[in-house]
Design a protein around this nucleic acid. Structure first.
Ligand code: MN
Ligand code: MN
Ligand code: ZN
Ligand code: ZN
Lengths: 138, 138
DNA sequence: ATATATTATGCAACTTTGTTGCAATTTTAG
DNA sequence: CTAAAATTGCAACAAAGTTGCATAATATAT
């Protein structure tokens, strides 16, 4: 996996640093989305808080991760698919938040439907976030 | 309008206070959703920051307002329709965020489609947030 | 209308979250 | 290996959100 991670960083024209490798590793190991807080907690002995902020921002810019909006002021992050590139994300999948275990997951296989808006509105991106009870909790 | 506002508070078993009246007035006057920050800015000479937090929480609890999730850690609030009640919101409409003027609006007339999830997942609520260019900006 | 009980508010003190500039360190490229 | 470029940690802030408690406002019952 170490090589896979360095590869991904180089592919995105980023210096390969301990911090970036560690954060990418966290994302690759996790099957659910991570909040800034989660990442900070799992790396705080090694890396500064500010570095985590900057790394997440950098990964966003390069299209390595995407955000998942939530209704409680706690943005989550998850890995993008290969098709995402600088500034242009193509994560057209639904996100699910389990109200029982709290995890947020990308449902890659569930595509976002097209929604027709009133005259004059132009759609750039559509986000669908479904809350309920997940597979494991039900 | 003053009477309409007091009425709404009483209907929800809330004391009629200056603070609550003022915040409800802001929502009724605005045709777009408001962030906590917006409300604080428009009331800060009169009311304490903490009171605004508590009032928004109370209005949420009673089903007077609902939140609109965004991908940038800035939850917005908007008035609910009459059908919403304590703990049970029925705002099954799409939300729109204009990337030009920044406003967030409820598209009451656009209903949220049903999305079929994989086996085992149970849907409680579906949120759809579309970003793009609004009617006025295009 | 007045007194009493209930609820809401403001304030202070605090915690958490996010930002910026800059010097020191690490990484990359030659 | 060296020099240039980029990343990091630190300090110092700023902004956002929380909690306990005394005071003030509102509602309820005489
Ligand atoms: Mn996703
Ligand atoms: Mn709405
Ligand atoms: Zn779950
Ligand atoms: Zn607009």
């Amino acid at each position: 996996m170490a090589e896979q991670i360095s590869e991904l960083l180089r592919k995105n024209q980023l210096s390969v640093t301990d911090n970036r490798k560690k954060i990418l590793e966290l994302f690759l190991q996790s099957d659910s989305a991570l909040a800034h807080h989660d990442i900070e907690a799992r790396t705080k002995e090694k890396f500064d808080r500010v570095t985590v902020y900057r790394t997440l921002q950098t990964f966003m810019d390069r299209g390595i991760i995407h955000t998942i909006p939530t209704a409680d002021n706690s943005v989550k992050y998850a890995l993008c698919k290969d098709s995402c590139e600088q500034g242009h994300h193509h994560d057209d999948h639904v996100h699910f938040i389990c109200s029982s275990c709290g995890t947020t997951t990308c449902l890659e296989e569930i595509h976002i439907p097209e929604i027709k808006l009133p005259r004059g509105y132009k759609t750039k991106q559509t986000e669908v976030v479904i809350s309920g009870v997940c597979k494991l909790c039900s």
